[in-house]
């Protein structure tokens, strides 16, 4: 077999897999968003833009868009800051480095459902260990699920705890590619620790950061499991974002067209955000 034939076969395979698993479902979701349909079994009726008109008029949509954006921005920002910080610590030559690195990755490899339930129990208002500690500190009335803000902060915290290791791993790998000479040069040039970080470390991990922020941004904007498992969007919609809204409409309210329209709008908004992001932070080659 000629090499270019091999390449072509692999390429075709890749395209086929992408088409079947990603493009077709996406197209179907978009088609569904123009239909009035309450079941995946029967064909829906063409509804034009009715679903979109309805959704754009729903206060929940705008609230959830805002919540979801805040959630994505807060979680990504914290993940990046903490991820860089922990990567710097793990990059330093310390005794037991391999062990610490392994431990630092742990949260990422735990299943979300385990993490969500563990935190729910730890934070439980009656028997939770955190509640217990807070009581020992004299804070007896904190119940994370009793206010929208506290619940939001909690899901942000759990998400950050869980997915920061991804940033840590990427940044750590990227830190290892920055030559020591550059730090030496910066010191000779008169840079202190902060300026070294600002002018050597940060530019050195920039491209990785751009990709990490991009990926984490997409993932956090679409993150469904942790919120669904912990709060189902409550209380009072304080943690409800577009994926929860879409799921709720499509699978609970038998409004598959509406749910698909929410998902499609979410896709469009995310695409626009990505384009803007890439304009602002092009990946240099």
């Amino acid at each position: 077999m000629k090499p270019d034939a091999t390449v072509r076969i692999f390429l075709l395979f890749g395209i086929a897999v992408t088409a079947v698993l990603i493009i077709l479902p996406a197209i179907q979701a978009i088609v569904l968003s123009f239909q009035s349909v309450n079941s995946f079994v029967v064909a829906g009726e063409w509804a034009g833009l009715a679903n979109y008109r309805r959704i754009l008029g729903m206060p929940e949509f705008w609230r959830d868009l805002w919540t979801g954006t805040c959630y994505a921005v807060c979680t990504v920002a914290l993940q990046v800051v903490l991820g860089i910080g922990s990567a710097l610590i793990l990059h330093a030559p310390i005794r037991g480095q391999a062990l610490f690195r392994a431990i630092a990755i742990l949260p990422y490899i735990l299943p979300t459902v385990v993490v969500a339930i563990s935190f729910q129990w730890m934070l439980d208002g009656n028997v939770g260990i955190v509640t217990h500690w807070l009581k020992a500190l004299g804070i007896s009335n904190f119940v994370w699920s009793d206010s929208s803000f506290a619940a939001f902060a909690t899901v942000v915290g759990v998400s950050v705890w869980m997915w920061t290791p991804f940033v840590t791993i990427c940044v750590l790998a990227s830190l290892q590619t920055i030559p020591d000479e550059l730090y030496a040069a910066a010191r000779v040039d008169g840079a202190g620790p902060f300026q070294s970080f600002r002018h050597v470390t940060l530019p050195g991990i920039r491209d990785v950061l751009v990709v990490v922020v991009l990926l984490r941004g997409i993932w956090m904007f679409n993150k469904f499991d942790v919120i669904w498992l912990m709060t189902q969007g409550g209380p009072l919609g304080g943690t409800e974002h577009l994926p929860v809204l879409s799921y709720h409409m499509a699978f609970r309210l038998y409004d598959i067209g509406g749910g698909a329209a929410v998902a499609t709008l979410s896709l469009i908004l995310l695409t626009v955000a990505l384009v803007v992001f890439f304009r602002r932070f092009p990946i240099e080659t």
């Binding site: 439980d124 208002g125 119940v143």
Partner: peptide, 8 residues
């Protein structure tokens, strides 16, 4: 009169 965390 309810325990803490009824919203969850």
């Amino acid at each position: 009169n309810m325990p803490a965390g009824m919203a969850q």
